[in-house]
Amino acid sequence: MTTLVPIEENSAIESNKEEEHGDYRMFGLAAFLVADGMTFAGFFAAYLTFKAVNPLFPDAIYELELPLPTLNTILLLVSSATFHKAGQAIRNNESKNCQRWLILTAFLGLAFLGSQMFEYFSLPFGLTDNLYASTFYALTGFHGLHVTLGTIMILIVWWQSRSPGGRITSQNHFPLEAAELYWHFVDGIWVILFIILYLL
């Protein structure tokens, strides 16, 4: 009943050292993003419950300005598209193109952060003013942290892709792919955040 069939040499089993299987790294990253998404889910749930059960939750007190966040949403969505373009470019072995798209994406990310900062400074409430203010800053701040990290990652990838014969080639571009997945994730989170924080 027990079968112990020896397998041939050189089958996949012989090569499961980390360096040799980039695709598992993408899988690992995806799993990590699921976990990260759950952190946001926890925050969203807290926000929504506060809103539903805390009668003094002052969502009616502040009329949040919509134009700036809408601009932010557009910035992030466009940056997702440009990052996608960068990925396509590297797969087609157009290294220069890829770099251009990357730097554009990074620029859009920075623009987002700048406009987010601007919004923070123009808001009529501060972090500890009340429950709503705290949740607002916690949610957007945690997301902003993610955007910051993402932007840094893009810049690193961009730097790597500039060095000739470097780590980013049409065959081997795990860092780029990882950063791209992460960036799409951050954008997706923003869309949810935008809907429940500004629109609801």
Binding site: A31, V34, A35, D36, G37, M38, T39, F40, A41, G42, F43, A46, A138, F142
Partner: peptide, 13 residues
Amino acid sequence: VLSTPVLAGTLIL
């Protein structure tokens, strides 16, 4: 993977 991050978020708050 699905539940620990929620604790992390909560403790950060």
